[in-house]
Design a protein around this nucleic acid. Sequence first.
DNA 1: CGTGTTTGACCGGCGC
DNA 2: GCGCCGGTCAAACACG
Length: 580
Amino acid sequence: MDEGGTGARRLSFDHTVDAAISVFNPKPSLFGVGPFRSSCKPDPAARKQAAFDMEQDDQHVESSDGMKRVVNEMDFFGSGGRSSSKEEAKADVKIESERQGLVQENDEPAAADVNTGLNLLTTNIVSEKSVPGDRTSQNLKDKERVNQLADVRAELERINEENQRLKVTLNQVNSNYYALQMHLVSLMQRQQNRRDESSEASEMNRTTEEKRHGEVIVARQFIDLGQSAKAEKDELSESSSDGRVQEFSGSPGNTIVESMERRKTNSSRNCETVPIDPISRKDLMDPGRNQREETPEGRPHPGWLQNKVPKFNTSRDVELAQETMAMIRKARVSVRARSEASMISDGCQWRKYGQKMAKGNPCPRAYYRCTMATGCPVRKQVQRCADDRTILNTTYEGNHNHPLPPAAMAMASTTSAAASMLLSGSMPSADGMMNSSTILPKGIMLPCSPNSVTLSASAPFPTVTLDLTYNPNQRPTSQLLAPSPNIPHLLGHPIYNQSKLLGLFSSQGIEHHPHLAQNQMQPPHPMADTVNAATAAITADPNFTAALVAAITSIIGNPHRDNSGNNNSPTSRNTVDNNT
DNA sequence: CGTGTTTGACCGGCGC
DNA sequence: GCGCCGGTCAAACACG
């Protein structure tokens, strides 16, 4: 079919999600909305299609019987719950364009393709008025058209079915992608708190304990996260455990959680595990709830959104969800990174609109506004740390209203997950660190940097801080670390042995610590092996792989991203180029 | 000339 | 009400 049509469908869906996903949504770029959208508009043959792209309601299409049918929008991903009349209306519209294309392909007389196909009976009427000698040939043409129409209808049905499948698959990929982000970032946070708590314990005991159970422990963490999703459904759908299994196994896209279930049954239960707070579990899925909440047609997306997201049966639920969305828009994500450059590179274009001297900090605070799209509300503040001026503190605020370039997806994904976590129920206190130590399995250590994720709900806006800085002198002696805590955790995964990925945050100061780069190349710590094991389990999932590929592509596929729209120092850029 | 930066002025929220 | 402070605006300026 035409690219425009496909683009329209994707655009419609992505627009839905884009409006609902938290701070930085990578999906528009992930699925290439822009090119599709632009490509479909200029085509005159697809003009009607493009009109539907605009999602203008109540467009009237005159059908063959002279009746005017109403087409609300051109959503080929429309759910099966829609009325059949709308389905027919869409089919009619689609057939028109199909028919036009076929007529031209068959090189029929010009008289045949003048008709736009809006009124198939018109030709018959005209033929009846024509001379009898032409009737035979005209009937043949009509029969041929009918045959073509039947073929086109069959093709349309097939394409619609494929669209449905694609829609489901897309939803599942998106859902798994974001769920995994939240899970992993949440995991990082819990690990941090766990580390704080366990610092009192004996280092030797913990070392042996982790060596013995590390793999199982990490696996259990993901298992518990999987359980969390399950438990959420339990609370909401009151389904039995058997029903849960059926629900998860019903769709291929839920294999992440499903695999967690399987691993749960296969893994050892030697680890001490305290059940995750149900509230926290439920809130882990908040972004999904938000996704669904802002579906334009007021109906949920299929796939995980139906499976894992609380259903809003009351206006209060909707109200709460709206409040959550408002919080997400207000939420801020702060990224601490070492950099001598004036600004870290995140792939976006920024325009400085102000600078102020903040109280208590001799370094000025710079205000930037996203200029990748007119009216993009995203802003960020950049300020050096007063204590350590090599640390750059970047605070993001707002939602991008435009597709993000691939280069911006990495940071966007990280901050998005962080913001989602921040606004989830994992934030127990009004102000302070997330205290989840009580819900963590004992002895779990993950390669997160100290204070890698800090949550604060203090006024005026909740803020989550991703600490990408690293000071080897501050490494706790009792800490069992993966190769380098300063390595950015792409989608929650520690990045080592991937030299190309070193460029991701190189402008954020890693280049200033050559030993870190060396460290990253060293064989992973035994604890890191456990992380790798868990990582491998997750990355085995094809849905995660797709999301991860998109993110990695955004990193290594754009070595010159730093040159776009920020004023990083040449040193940073050179480092990136060298690493890529 | 267009674009981005600089910088003083302005505004609104908040605490006293 | 006043002052402080954070955030934004917009004119002036710099740069390619």
